[in-house]
C-alpha cells in the first residue's frame, strides 16, 4: 500500500468491513470469499483432519517435552468438552470441536500486527506473511480463538530427521523460528485452483478445491467453498442456516443449527458451525 494508492483510494480503505456486497461475483478481485460450514453433529472427533493438516502444511512434530511446554503446532485441533452439568458420567457423550483459524472478516489479529504481516486477502482470507513477520506475537494475544501458533524453536533443524524432509510439501514454506503461523485454508491449493481457472477463463467450480482437512474428513462433516457463488454448497448452507457473513449477530429460529463461535466479539468469522444434536429422550 503506497501512500499514493492510499490517498487515491481513501474512501475504500476507510470503509468498515465487512460491508454488504463486499464480495461480488461481478467485481474483479472480489469474486471469491472462501468459507466453511462444519457440522458438529457428525464430527466424530477422529483427528483425521489434524493428521491431514500435518501432512499438507509441513507442520512440525514437536515431541512430548515441547508439547507439554505448549509449543504444539496443530493448525486444526480437536477440542473435547464435557457438559457443564454432567453428573457422575458423561451420559450425552463428549462434545468435539475442531478449531482452526476462523478467517475472520474483521480479524482482531490483523489490526494489531505492527508490521502488517497478517492482513486480509481479496478472497477473504486472513493471510500470514511469514517473511514480514517479526514475531511480536501480538496477533496471538488478540486472537480470541487462540489458533495462532508461534515457532518457538527452529523446527526445520530438529523436527524432520532425514529422510522425513522428503515428505515436505514443496508448495508450502517450512517456517523458521520466531514467526507466527496458522491455518491458511490451504491457500496453496486455492491459489493453484484459481490460477488454473483463470487460464480457462472461468471461476473455480464448487468442490474443485478443498483444504486437506475437508478432503480427509471421513464423515464429510466439513463443507468448504466460495460463499460468493450462491449456488455453491457452502453458500446454500449458510443461507439455509440463516447465518449472514455481513452480520455480527444472527437472528435465527430455534430449530436452526448454524452459528459462529464468539460472534459477540464481532470478528465476523468465516466458519459456520452447526450445532451438535442430541436425542434427549434416549
Amino acid at each position: 500500500m503506497s501512500i499514493t494508492n492510499l490517498l487515491n483510494n481513501w474512501s475504500f480503505y476507510r470503509q468498515k468491513r465487512p460491508y454488504q456486497g463486499q464480495y461480488d461475483l461481478n467485481r474483479q478481485y472480489s469474486e471469491y470469499k472462501w468459507a466453511m460450514a462444519l457440522d458438529l453433529d457428525i464430527c466424530t472427533g477422529c483427528n483425521a483432519c489434524t493428521t491431514a493438516c500435518y501432512a499438507e502444511n509441513n507442520l512440525p512434530v514437536v515431541g512430548k517435552k515441547r508439547f507439554n511446554q505448549g509449543h504444539v503446532m496443530h493448525w486444526i485441533r480437536i477440542e473435547r468438552y464435557w457438559d457443564e452439568n454432567m453428573g457422575e458420567f458423561p451420559e450425552q457423550g463428549a462434545s468435539f470441536l475442531p478449531m482452526m483459524c476462523q478467517q475472520c472478516e474483521e480479524a482482531p489479529c490483523e489490526t494489531v500486527c505492527p508490521v502488517g504481516a497478517t492482513s486480509h486477502t481479496n478472497d477473504g482470507l486472513n493471510s500470514q506473511n511469514y517473511h514480514r513477520c517479526v514475531g511480536s506475537r501480538y496477533c496471538s494475544v488478540n486472537c480470541p480463538y487462540k489458533v495462532r501458533y508461534f515457532n518457538f524453536w527452529n523446527y526445520p533443524s530438529t523436527a524432520w530427521p532425514a529422510p522425513l524432509p522428503d515428505q515436505l510439501n514443496p508448495d508450502v514454506t517450512v517456517r523458521t523460528k520466531g514467526i507466527m503461523e496458522k491455518c491458511t485454508f490451504c491457500v496453496q491449493r486455492l491459489n493453484e485452483a484459481k490460477s488454473r481457472a483463470r487460464t480457462e477463463y472461468r471461476l473455480v467450480r464448487d468442490g474443485e478445491v478443498v483444504p486437506a482437512c475437508v478432503q480427509a474428513c471421513p464423515t464429510s462433516a466439513i463443507t468448504f467453498g466460495n460463499i460468493v457463488d450462491p449456488k455453491s454448497k457452502v453458500a446454500m448452507m449458510w443461507k439455509n442456516q440463516q447465518v449472514d457473513l455481513y452480520k455480527d449477530m444472527q437472528e435465527k429460529d430455534n430449530s436452526v443449527r448454524g452459528y459462529r463461535i464468539l460472534e459477540d466479539l464481532r470478528p465476523f468469522p468465516s466458519v459456520m458451525y452447526l450445532e451438535r444434536v442430541r436425542d434427549m429422550e434416549a
Partner: peptide, 12 residues
Amino acid sequence: KLVVTLPADVAQ
C-alpha cells in the same frame, strides 16, 4: 457458547 447442543426434537 462454543459447542451448542440442540435437542433432536427441536432440530429440523
